[in-house]
């Protein structure tokens, strides 16, 4: 796995707050699971997050990742983006 820059994770954290409308998620660690308890990413917040990622980084995660494994944590999502955005 490539080394992920803190910049991308930080930007993703901002997008996550925007997608969920929950300011407290600014404290989300890059290892916290996005699905399930805690962040609790669901269909609506998930779609908002994926669209904003597509818009800012040009990476269409839903088209390239059938199981959406990239959405496991902010770290996996950042790695997925960096691998493709080059």
């Amino acid at each position: 796995m490539s080394v992920v820059s803190a910049g991308v994770v930080g930007e993703l954290r901002q997008i996550l707050v925007q997608a969920t409308g929950r300011e407290e998620l600014l404290d989300t660690s890059d290892q916290t699971p996005l699905f399930g308890a805690g962040v609790g990413l669901d269909s609506l917040s998930g779609v908002m997050l994926l669209r904003e990622v597509h818009r800012r980084f040009g990476v269409d995660v839903a088209a390239e990742d059938l199981n959406l494994d990239a959405l496991a944590t902010l770290a996996t999502l950042a790695a997925f983006i960096e691998e493709r955005a080059g």
Binding site: L41, S43, A62
Partner: peptide, 8 residues
């Protein structure tokens, strides 16, 4: 959205 629910 459905795939997100399935993944979750």
């Amino acid at each position: 959205p459905l795939r997100l629910a399935l993944a979750a």
